[in-house]
């Protein structure tokens, strides 16, 4: 994921383009249904469903069951604010790096903090 170097200073994101579009829609319209997202973004229902399941699993989105005159519907809302999501992404990257390359990361930060002091 990190390898792709989609990291830019303002647009830090580990989300796929569709995940991003869905997230920004949900940030503006909490409590959206799959069909609302599908219609507004002009993306097929099944793609939205698959993507929303992934976002739920990774803790970006929460699902809630609602009853609207005898019909059941599921609405999706953001779990994290935009800022928190950004923070989570950075932390996820760092966690992954720490798991895989602990020595390199530790010595890197060590060097960086040494640079700062001098």
């Amino acid at each position: 994921m990190v390898k792709k170097k989609r990291l830019e200073i303002d647009e830090l994101s580990l989300l796929s383009p569709l995940e991003e579009r869905i997230m920004s829609f949900i940030w503006e319209n909490p409590e959206s249904t799959v069909s609302e997202i599908s219609q507004n973004l002009n993306v097929s229902l099944s793609s939205v469903a698959v993507t929303i399941d992934r976002l739920c699993k990774h803790g970006y989105v929460s699902r809630e069951r609602k009853r609207v005159d005898k019909r059941i519907k599921y609405v999706y809302s953001p779990v994290l604010s935009k800022e928190e999501a950004k923070r989570k992404m950075v932390e996820d990257i760092l966690d992954t790096l720490m798991e895989r390359f602990e020595d390199i990361v530790v010595s890197y930060f060590h060097r960086r903090s040494g640079d700062d002091k001098s």
Partner: peptide, 27 residues
């Protein structure tokens, strides 16, 4: 099953349906 894709299946004598199916279907 909390899943947005509509699915239904049976294991043994238990039936599993997904949230997506429940939302999609009338009674």
């Amino acid at each position: 099953i909390e899943m947005a894709l509509p699915k239904a299946f049976t294991l043994g004598r238990d039936v599993f349906i997904t949230a997506g199916l429940l939302e999609l279907m009338s009674e």
